[in-house]
């Protein structure tokens, strides 16, 4: 049974730009959707994994995790190596040496702006790629509007959206919603407002959930 004759499945995703599992999970969900005999509509919601990160953090990802989280240097390096290998299995080329750790609040504001234009999915992919594969800075307004322009969004409107802070309340509302739902980590997926899936599960798990939600088994 499928949902092809029914309404599209709504998938709400809480995630952060600075979240490797969110990028890996995005690929796994996309693969599941390719084989799913139905329609789905995705909406991304904001979640700041490390809100205490300064915009202009000086240091590498290893430095951040070692200094701010107290993790042993060797453990961090091993973790990033494993994550890079996992990402490669999904066709992603993570470059932690080039990565610029930063606060993602403004990136989330830009994603809300993009949502009003129907461009959220394109911008989400652009920001993740910029951050994990290209060593681009996704915390500064100038860099963010440049990335928006690269996908064809209006530069002036993007700048105004960020400098005015008019989407700050929307970001805060997303985060408050996550906390109200008990979400402590991301990515977190909600299917048709009733079935939650935590983490970048293997694509066959997403396939299973999609089929069960479509058939109303879940």
């Amino acid at each position: 049974m499928n949902s092809s004759a029914d309404s599209p499945i709504k998938i709400d995703i809480w995630s952060d730009v600075a979240c490797p599992w969110c990028y890996v999970g995005k690929r796994r969900l996309e693969r599941a959707l390719q084989s799913f005999d139905g329609e789905a509509v995705i909406e991304f919601h904001s979640f700041e994994l490390a809100p205490d990160t300064p915009v202009d953090f000086s240091g590498s990802e290893v430095d951040f995790l070692a200094r701010h989280k107290g993790m042993p240097h060797a453990q961090v390096e091993q973790m990033l190596t494993q994550m890079t290998a996992l990402a490669a299995e999904e066709g992603l080329a993570f470059d932690y040496d080039a990565l610029q750790h930063t606060k993602t609040l403004k990136a989330h504001e830009l994603l809300h702006h993009a949502k009003t234009l129907g461009r959220q999915a394109d911008l989400k992919e652009r920001l993740l790629k910029a951050y994990f594969e290209q060593g681009r800075h996704v915390g500064r307004v100038d860099e963010l509007v440049a990335l928006a322009e690269e996908i064809g969004m209006d530069l002036a409107a993007a700048r105004d959206a960020l400098e005015s802070g008019k989407y700050a309340d929307d970001v805060a509302a997303d985060i408050a919603q996550a906390h109200a739902m008990g979400i402590r980590g991301v990515p977190f997926y909600v299917f048709d407002e009733r079935v939650g899936v935590s983490g970048a599960q293997p694509s066959d798990v997403f396939t299973d959930v999609l089929e069960r939600v479509a058939s109303k088994e879940l």
Partner: peptide
Amino acid sequence: YSGLVVVGDETAGVCVDGVCAVPGASTA
């Protein structure tokens, strides 16, 4: 979202408080 049912292992493939742990194996 009240009454949300969560399926699957909640500890797999998640980033929490800025830390994105990887399970022991190379794949989840």
